[in-house]
Design a protein around this nucleic acid. Structure first.
Lengths: 148, 148
DNA sequence: TAACAGTGTTAGTCTCGGCTAATTTTCTTT
DNA sequence: AAAGAAAATTAGCCGAGACTAACACTGTTA
């Protein structure tokens, strides 16, 4: 195979919500604890350890991370980019909705679902909205009054 | 099993995105054409007719619609409620994003994905936002300037 | 250093929601 | 009314992504 890529993850490839959830979670764990263990990923995603091992092997095969049995997990540049992108969407959505006083449990559930379906352009719009609302509490107050 | 329900769809039961897509589409077809044929549902969801037949039978079993082989499809109250709810979320999200001039293709893809993950409370917030922006073009203009 | 607890892995299975191919029913057209 | 076209259905299959049970590795601790 002369000029063939091994099957590396392309920036534009279709990522399933499942893949994005794993990468987001692995990214978050590495960012906060310095490493990502199978048991923690499983705990945070509320799935079994066996499922995590399976998926991690697949993600390694697709070029999102480096994996050595019984050893550890390291994100590739590609994997880190995806994880960070989802984390950013998560943050924007959370702050946008939290600003209106929605209960944290609801915010969490909705954000969890929505974050996988937001394009770059939509993210920009929602970021704009979030920033405006955070900079303009009077507007939020006025809007919230209509929530009754 | 003395006091057991037959397995009817409860208002609070978990509906998969797939189920919601079918019910939204069936609802839309009935609203615009007066009836929902398998071939049209398949076309609108970009899936095969066989898949539609299968799912329609399942939805009938779960109480979302009435179905008679080779005849027709009628939504139950439960099915109509779900279909309308999703259509409402679709409308709010579309208008909210379109207001910022995002290209229709992008709006469509994002809305399609997000509409299944929006709680009643979040819908209220987004509705509020949409109404404010539609009533206040000056605000939109000001925000859009920051999009560059 | 031997054993135990905890973590990780493998093997095999399940459900969901698609698919194609073949068949049946209905509709339309002559 | 018979034939061909269109729509609907059935049967069997597949891949994603979960699960459990059993087994393997690792690291700590007596």
């Amino acid at each position: 195979m002369p000029a063939a890529k091994k099957k590396a993850a392309r920036a534009t490839s279709a990522k399933s919500p499942a893949i994005e959830d794993y990468l987001e979670q692995i990214h978050n764990l590495i960012a906060t604890k310095g490493y990502a263990r199978v048991v923690d990923i499983a705990e945070n995603l509320s799935i079994s350890q066996a499922s995590v091992t399976n998926m991690v092997q697949r993600l390694a095969g697709e070029g999102y991370l480096l994996y050595e049995r019984y050893r550890g997990i390291v994100l590739t540049d590609e994997g880190r980019m995806v994880g960070e992108a989802i984390a950013r969407r998560h943050d924007v959505l959370s702050r946008l909705l939290s600003g209106f006083g929605l209960d944290p449990e609801t915010v969490h559930r909705d954000v969890e679902g929505m974050e996988h379906h937001i394009s770059r352009q939509t993210l920009e719009v929602l970021t704009l909205l979030m920033e405006e609302l955070e900079a303009n509490p009077a507007l939020v107050t006025r809007l919230k009054q209509r929530l009754r």
